[in-house]
Design a protein around this nucleic acid. Structure first.
Lengths: 278, 278
DNA sequence: CCCGGAATTCCACCATGTGAAATTCAACAT
DNA sequence: ATGTTGAATTTCACATGGTGGAATTCCGGG
């Protein structure tokens, strides 16, 4: 296949086995970017950009993914979104341990206690993934994070709590890998590192409307994760509903719920068999 | 990239746009094969075989897919299964119209009425996909079809009903494309064509333990499909519980439920926007 | 009508993916 | 123990399938 002439743009996965299929990795990288896109999906430009691919290359791959049903495309906006085949694969891919089910009660209790929207996040590669959500009585307007949405670990309260719960060396690697992506959120790797430190010192994460202005989040990491996968519980509300005093209250509730969740998880079975290639 | 010397083995997707990424298509084809595998997953041999790829090629692609988290591998049996990243994508890929939700009541009512296991199937490419299931009081032992499992359209009652509901030209194309796969189920394209004819004449599908001996299924297609996607309702039981007289009863129930389901669907919104590439 | 940015198509080029063949590994029988 | 069979894995010389800069088309706004 083709050569490349210009400067090297790619390398979305810096530390990956050399041999294999570059194209396949690129295609998957595009899928990840599409599933990271919030709201109405992502345009070719955005995707090519964030996957670090030249536009024509991205275009070609996206076309194949669409033809195969992994992606769909909005006729009007030309934006790509995940396709029905991925939904179908999702049905067949039963998770080793079902985090959503295990945490359903916890989420519900927190939401009832605080009245605001509650999130369950988990780590997925360099991303935080929104696994589940309970809407509080005080609705968040302005596109909230949906179930299945991704963003770089560290961006947002829930994602920050997950990142801070990783071993230092691993957290550093993630921050490094995400450096470029932070910029699109008006952040830098350096700043994230500071946040992580603060989160570790404090024991839980707080964010102040960096992503969507006017919103604030409080989040706590779940013990050693769920089935070995790092995870967090988060509460998000408009900033004025989360003054320092109330942050304190919410944090107390989160700490309590995390503790009892950890006990439940201690009984549940262990992690996967051989997921990452040796 | 590489040339090929031996005879042409591939062509899982006979009618697909020439230009693009062959590798990507092959990789996706492998994913489909993995998700078609029942029970404990699929071995390299099986996958290479059914995807029509030389073993080393399949091996290389599977390794990448595993490294990226789309596949996992059982340490002991070396068998591949769908990975957690696909589950995660599935969360984000909200279906245009939620067939499972729309048919939940129907499935429950049928199961209660007949006492045996009931399935909701839909078409996905050349496959029938098990979208949902309700266990009857008379359990099916011997690995039943799980939610998310696939098999070639035409193999099994539910899959046959879906196939027979397609326009003749389309059904023929599907049968043609699946010819090789039928053989692995002890069937032939010719025989499937006969079954389709019989199903159309009868108005519903019956199968007699072709797949798993001793079992029998009765199935009916759902009007014009669900959100434009062809689908079926099926009841499966051990053969002795489905003698001709009882088949008649079950069919009556299916016909009644299909009718009322069709009315519910008439209110629900329409199909996708621009899924298959022009 | 014309402009700017995004989407799409072209196409010369060669690095990348290919697959037959050889090697290792695992399970089972002798 | 030792051979035997079949699957999994690695190797490597080769030429084709993928590449991406440049050119073209499309679309929305002024």
């Amino acid at each position: 296949m083709g050569g490349f002439r210009g400067l090297r743009l790619m390398d979305t996965h810096p530390a990956s086995s050399a041999d294999g299929a570059r194209v396949v990795r690129r295609a998957i990288s595009l899928l990840r970017e599409v599933s990271a896109a919030r709201g109405n999906g992502a345009t070719l430009k955005m995707l090519a950009d964030s996957a670090g691919l030249p536009q024509p290359t991205a275009h070609r791959l996206l076309k194949v993914l669409q033809a195969e049903g992994l992606l769909e495309r909005d006729a009007a906006s030309r934006a790509y979104r995940l396709g029905s085949l991925l939904y179908e694969f999702g049905l067949a891919a039963v998770p080793r341990v079902d985090a959503r089910r295990l945490c359903a009660g916890t989420l519900e209790r927190i939401t009832r206690a605080v009245g605001d929207t509650t999130y369950l996040n988990s780590r997925s590669g360099n991303d935080a993934l929104c696994l589940d959500r309970r809407e509080g009585s005080f609705e968040i307007h302005a596109l909230p994070i949906e179930i299945g949405n991704r963003r770089p670990l560290g961006v947002g309260a829930g994602a920050l709590a997950v990142l801070a719960s990783l071993p230092s060396t691993e957290a550093d690697a993630v921050i490094e890998a995400n450096a470029r992506r932070y910029r699109r959120h008006g952040l830098t790797a350096e700043r994230i590192r500071i946040y992580v430190e603060a989160t570790r010192a404090r024991g839980f994460a707080i964010t102040s409307g960096r992503i969507v202005a006017q919103y604030r989040g409080v989040a706590i990491a779940v013990g050693n994760g769920i089935g070995g996968v790092p995870a967090s519980l988060a509460v998000v509300a408009i900033a004025e509903r989360l003054d320092p005093r109330r942050v304190e209250q919410v944090a107390r509730i989160l700490i309590r719920e995390e503790k009892s969740l950890r006990e439940v998880l201690a009984i549940a079975p262990a992690g996967p068999t051989e997921s990452p290639v040796p």
